[in-house]
Design a protein around this nucleic acid. Structure first.
Lengths: 216, 216
DNA sequence: GGGTGTGAAAGCCTTCACAGCA
DNA sequence: TGCTGTGAAGGCTTTCACACCC
């Protein structure tokens, strides 16, 4: 349950919090307060939605003035779990996995890539920055040793469910799936997916039929 | 408007059609029909949703029997615009852009990567398979020459809005954005986004608060 | 009997509109 | 006066439940 001493935060709101946080960070230190109108503009939503969303975090605004940027940032970071690190393992070091491994954006934002794993002997042992790719057999050990919190699956589709099962058995409770297949996971595990082929097909649907709101 | 001789197809349904199509393709040719129950299982949704969704396409099921797999595939492919190719340009050939360029999965599925574009002189001229990276100045020409239908933005965040504007000015009406920033586009343009940092933050939210439905 | 197609009910999410406070 | 916080309305999506047809 999402009831930590307050009301439950709707899923739709949770999905927007990172966008608001990014908008707040872009404002810079010479902006002490923002209005819901400004935040809305910068996040690409409308002001009523911003106010509703922020009200779920508690009331951190001042009527007639707006929201205290720094205060709101801090609360948002706390809500999103960004006061600690969440080590990540990337499973499947093909094109995409390698790109993710090289992508610097994770580490300095609280999601250090702590391990890389692949099933192919040709890839195992290869080096990416400080990390050496380890064998798929060792996945459970890797999860334990590195205190992995988030598993990123970038394997071919047929391997993905097996990897997910192993990650979950090893104690991982958050999975980001790039493999083009539907994964089934128990309810205590959070699953998000990124599927490029699906995105393309949604776009070509609207290209044919005229857009209404291709946006998620 | 999404009213091609029938009722409008809800956005939520459109987003699931590609998943159904993939499930149908996995069934193989020795399965002439599927029930909504089976399709639901394989797509990770419930059967009532499958029936509602398919009913928007028209009624292609037979009571007591199920859906004709081949017939349904054909209709779905048509609805998703998969009877023709939609050439893609990838703008921004960094880690991610390069991975997407090398990723074979697009071309053989109706989304041929027809051009690569980058702003940096160090990258322009580099070769990926048959393609040579072209300069950002040439973007409008590239779109025209290659009949680009879909623009994939994989640039750093600060460049993304400019690229989007140029793509749109050149006639592109579908954009897939990987840059970690909010883009604004006119209503006739379809926009989808993939934001890794956002996905991670959503996962760590639920890791802290307990999952409800991290799934999109 | 078996499984689709679909009104109706229920649940979410968004938007409105305005009371209330700085 | 200006802008937040929020009940209430409205819209979209999901789920139910069953008539209907093969």
């Amino acid at each position: 349950m999402v009831e930590r001493g307050g009301k439950r935060i709707p899923d739709a709101t949770v999905a927007r919090l990172p966008i608001y946080l990014r908008s707040l960070l872009e404002l810079g230190p010479q902006t002490p307060t923002v209005s819901s109108e400004q935040l809305a503009e910068s996040a690409g939503v409308n002001a009523a939605k911003v106010r509703k969303d922020l009200s779920y975090l508690g009331s951190y605004g001042t009527r007639g003035v707006g929201y205290d940027v720094e205060y709101l940032q801090a609360h948002m970071r706390r809500a999103l779990g960004m006061t600690q690190d969440w080590p990540v393992v990337i499973v499947g070091i093909g094109n995409l996995g390698a790109a993710l491994a090289n992508y610097g954006g994770f580490g300095n934002r609280g999601y250090p890539v702590a391990a890389l794993v692949d099933a192919s002997p040709e890839v195992v042992g290869r080096r990416f920055g400080d990390l050496v790719v380890r064998s798929a057999d060792e996945l459970a050990d890797v999860v334990a040793e590195e205190h992995i919190a988030i598993g990123v699956i970038a394997t071919p589709a047929p391997a993905a469910q097996g990897v997910a099962d192993e990650l979950i058995a090893a104690g991982v409770r958050s999975i980001l799936n790039f493999a083009p297949t539907v994964l089934s996971v128990p309810p205590e595990v959070s699953l998000r997916k990124v599927d490029l082929a699906v995105e393309m097909q949604i776009l070509s649907f609207y290209q044919q039929h005229g857009p209404t709101s291709a946006a998620e």
